[in-house]
Design a protein around this nucleic acid. Structure first.
Length: 161
DNA sequence: ATAGTTGTACCGA
DNA sequence: TCGGTACAACTAT
């Protein structure tokens, strides 16, 4: 399913009651390409996606939405990545932590590897990798574009404007 | 084996 | 404060 809650597009894929992938992008085309969703496909009737869609709409309005009820399809990922994402999901709405904090919490010194795992995050927003920034307060990177990271942090009230 | 990360710390100017 | 650089753990090739 593809929705456009703001200036960017959001592609959502679910299967068997679990979220498989989320894609954030500035263009509808790249979202479709990324997820392999054809224009001809009908809107999903999956209740999971319907629910997620409303939650995301609320989220964009600035409502404090809790995405932790959604289960993720993680079978094909490394245990390190799973740990990083699980830890990242624990960061509360509107707060941020550093890559180092995440690494320490999962018993690793590889803070840069944390960045890499977050870069591979298949569930942006649901796994709030935008809440992970550098130790010195800089934003760090974001695979879907730093502008989107900034936007998300603004929605959550962490950044102004 | 090697190169490339969404990083951190330390040093010198 | 800024730039260079050494280093860290992990992934992908």
């Amino acid at each position: 399913m593809i929705v456009k809650p703001d200036v960017f597009w959001l592609g959502l894929v679910a299967s068997q009651g679990k979220l498989v992938r989320v894609c954030l992008s500035y263009s509808e085309e790249s979202t479709r390409e990324n997820l392999g969703i054809k224009r001809s496909e009908k809107a999903s009737t999956s209740s999971l996606l319907q629910s997620l869609r409303w939650d995301l709409a609320d989220y964009w309005k600035g409502k404090r939405v809790d995405f932790s009820k959604y289960s993720l399809e993680l079978a094909s990922y490394s245990s390190f990545s799973k740990k990083v994402w699980a830890q990242t999901r624990l960061i509360p709405y509107g707060e941020v932590r550093s890559y180092k904090w995440v690494a320490e919490r999962i018993g690793s010194k590889g803070f840069q590897a944390v960045g890499k795992a977050l870069g591979n995050n298949p569930f942006p927003i649901i796994v709030p990798c935008h809440r992970v920034i550098k130790e010195d307060g800089e934003l760090g990177g974001f695979s879907s574009g730093l502008g989107i990271k900034r936007k998300l942090l603004k929605i959550e009230g962490f950044l102004n404007d």
